[in-house]
Design a protein around this nucleic acid. Sequence first.
DNA 1: TCACTGATGTACGAACCAGTACGTTAGCTG
DNA 2: CAGCTAACGTACTGGTTCGTACATCAGTGA
Lengths: 221, 221
Amino acid sequence: MTSVEEPARSGERIRDAARTRAEILDVATQEFARAGYDGARVDEIAARTRTTKRMIYYYFGGKEQLFTSVLERAYGVIREAEQQLDVDHLDPVAAIRRLAELTLDHHEQHPDFIRLVSIENIHEAQHIAASEKLGKIGSPALDVIRRILASGRESGLFTADVDAVDLHAMISSFCFFRVANRHTFGALFGRDLLDEAQRAHYRAMLGDMVIAYLTAERTPR
Amino acid sequence: MTSVEEPARSGERIRDAARTRAEILDVATQEFARAGYDGARVDEIAARTRTTKRMIYYYFGGKEQLFTSVLERAYGVIREAEQQLDVDHLDPVAAIRRLAELTLDHHEQHPDFIRLVSIENIHEAQHIAASEKLGKIGSPALDVIRRILASGRESGLFTADVDAVDLHAMISSFCFFRVANRHTFGALFGRDLLDEAQRAHYRAMLGDMVIAYLTAERTPR
DNA sequence: TCACTGATGTACGAACCAGTACGTTAGCTG
DNA sequence: CAGCTAACGTACTGGTTCGTACATCAGTGA
């Protein structure tokens, strides 16, 4: 998360637009993730900032646009992480497994992002629709998946002609569910999907699942 | 969904506690699913009912308990559906595939339930925790999965010693994601996961994935 | 150094919204 | 048919919450 860093020259800078803006975004991210869009309080965000509510309206225009900006930055972070993906040197099977594991880890490390996405879905992605930036970011991960799938198909390792977007959905769904539904799943089934002791287990399970799917002999049903 | 049915003897019954209660629950389910817990308006629920806000407080005590009651009934519906599961006459592979397909269909047909679960997770399952009923419902689907897994293992069809709860999570995650994240996924990747024309495709994909996982030869990594 | 603009703080308003005090009625029970 | 209680309606309140009018200050460029 791109968060506010104290400048080396000890604090106390009075006027710093970029800094104020970033600090508002940091706190707003937490508050929206904590309580949902309607549950979040603009006053609460302001209170936890070194500035005032006035500044939120000055910089972002309103609660709605603030949430959109929070989303834009959050998606920016994950897009950056995906751009760091470097699995081209691996064979297709190892590459897919690695991609799945990195996705699992990344989701686990960014629960606020997962919550924001859940919240945005409750609101039917209206903020993404209203955002110019978010419409056309695309997903670096998709390009990676496309390359791996192509090479896996060429080498004959992957049996099925799987679509990259579908595979992305398959991997994401498990990683997302694990974080997003942690609480209800835990309450109903008595199992914490984010239990540290189980992380290796679930990483292996996801990798096994995806690889099994990609390499299975398709028997017509 | 257990919804309010007009009694055969034409309407106009003035006092009917059960009916009023059920109607409130129906409308509340829609309203909470539409707008989230904090976004939902008690006045709005009352307005769309043949009764008044006073009755909501009379029967349920408050907004919080109303939401809990909505959750309890929603989970009751899915539990009932799971109890109808009848796949014991099928061979393990067909049984698992059928279970996965039924789960996919059920989730798709109950988007409000999916939204309620998402909302409850944003609130860290606090209402489930506060509910006496929801704590101990268990999942009939889990029992079914356990039976299928046992028989699949016996017959040697299933290679791995997979845990029933894990398999349930695996199947649910894809079905859940497809409905819950429909909007953001659609906005970002330009693909509607609930497109009717794609339903058969995703049903097959989910089944293939789960079966491939269960029947794959495990190669030690 | 002075004026101008971007950045910031204070104080407040108006709408909203969960919850309730109080009064009324339907319909069953004896 | 009397009277009791569960069921219901009206009207209101008190606190909350988004948003803004207005005043002020910092720093820069001429």
